[in-house]
């Protein structure tokens, strides 16, 4: 039982990191109907921003976190302006292929020696690890930070989307771009904000991933990116609480599979979930069948 609880905590840790990535996928999809395959690489670059801010510049952890989020937000907005905006009225497949190209570009460009380099790097430890023993279950201060930061960011995001005028505008744009313009909403601005927020969250995820699984390289975003994408689909793509739920399920299932079945099957089970969801409920757990009242 304690072993199960322990694995549950480990699964939640992974799930919360996935959630921070999945939110960007789902928000961007909600607004521009694009699967931004470069999103996992923004997560990777966020981890590197954290790496340099913590390791080289010796910034305290919270500042490094904010720095990585801002850096990724700017990166995400730039990617959208350069790569996706010119294709806004093109067939969707064009933007999708561009996203894949952007993903490969970010991976191989950052692998260059004068950028991040191709090697694995050990992530700096901003603070010593402290383990708390709770009746046989170990909870580390890193896990507490992962949970705390992730939950805090998700709550802030929820409030932002639900309560602010910009959040309302985001939901309106995701529902109907033409009519949103008639309200005076600048679509381009809302799209930029969405990319900025999504990328910033991925950046936070990158730093948390770095301190929790302290090894990074330029391809570290590929698998978490894919899993977070599956999580977003699992929860219902375009639905923010769905991404959180889907990601937590993905993280827990993955860790549980590794712990109780076989660690070689963890990815197979994760992607198996995607296939099953697509077969049974293609719109995802929280997805509604597309029906509109006219």
């Amino acid at each position: 039982m304690t072993y199960f609880l322990q694995q549950l905590i480990n699964g939640l840790q992974l799930g919360f990191v996935y959630a921070l990535i999945a939110l960007g996928y789902t928000m961007v999809y909600g607004i521009v109907r694009l699967i931004n395959f470069a999103h996992g690489d923004v997560f990777m670059i966020g981890a590197y921003f954290g790496f340099y801010l913590l390791g080289r510049f010796k910034l305290p952890f919270p500042l490094a976190m904010v720095g990585a989020m801002l850096g990724c937000a700017i990166l995400g907005i730039t990617i959208e302006k350069l790569a996706y905006k010119p294709l806004r009225n093109a067939p969707r497949i064009a933007a999708l292929i561009t996203a894949m190209g952007m993903s490969l570009f970010l991976e191989y460009f950052t692998s260059l020696k004068f950028v991040f380099g191709p090697n694995y790097l050990a992530y700096p430890r901003p603070f010593p690890i402290v383990n708390f023993n709770l009746g046989g279950v170990t909870l580390s201060n890193i896990q507490i930070i992962v949970f705390g930061v992730a939950i805090f960011l998700m709550v802030v995001l929820q409030i932002f989307v639900a309560k602010t005028k910009t959040g309302m505008a985001m939901r309106a744009v995701s529902f109907d771009k033409q009519t949103a313009q008639l309200m005076g909403i600048d679509i381009s601005r809302i799209i930029s904000i969405t990319f900025g927020i999504g990328s910033g969250l991925a950046g936070a995820g990158g730093v948390l991933y770095g301190i929790a699984y302290p090894q990074i390289n330029p391809f570290m975003g590929v698998m978490p990116g894919l899993k977070a994408f599956v999580a977003a689909v699992l929860g219902g793509i375009g639905i923010i609480p769905g991404a959180m739920l889907g990601a937590i399920i993905m993280g827990v299932v993955e860790v549980m599979t590794a712990a109780f079945v076989s660690s070689t099957l963890r990815d197979a089970v994760a992607f198996g979930i995607l296939i099953i969801v697509l077969l049974i409920k293609p719109t995802g757990i929280l997805g509604k069948p597309a029906a509109e009242k006219v």
């Binding site: 939901r171 009519t179 313009q181 005076g184």
Partner: peptide, 28 residues
């Protein structure tokens, strides 16, 4: 002039089919 700026000039266009934002509340 882009559509979102024209709205700001004092022209409100109530589109065909009404087009409410169904995912938002009446207040929103």
């Amino acid at each position: 002039i882009p559509a979102h700026k024209i709205a700001g000039l004092g022209i409100s266009h109530v589109p065909e089919g009404r087009k409410p934002f169904s995912n938002l509340t009446v207040y929103e």
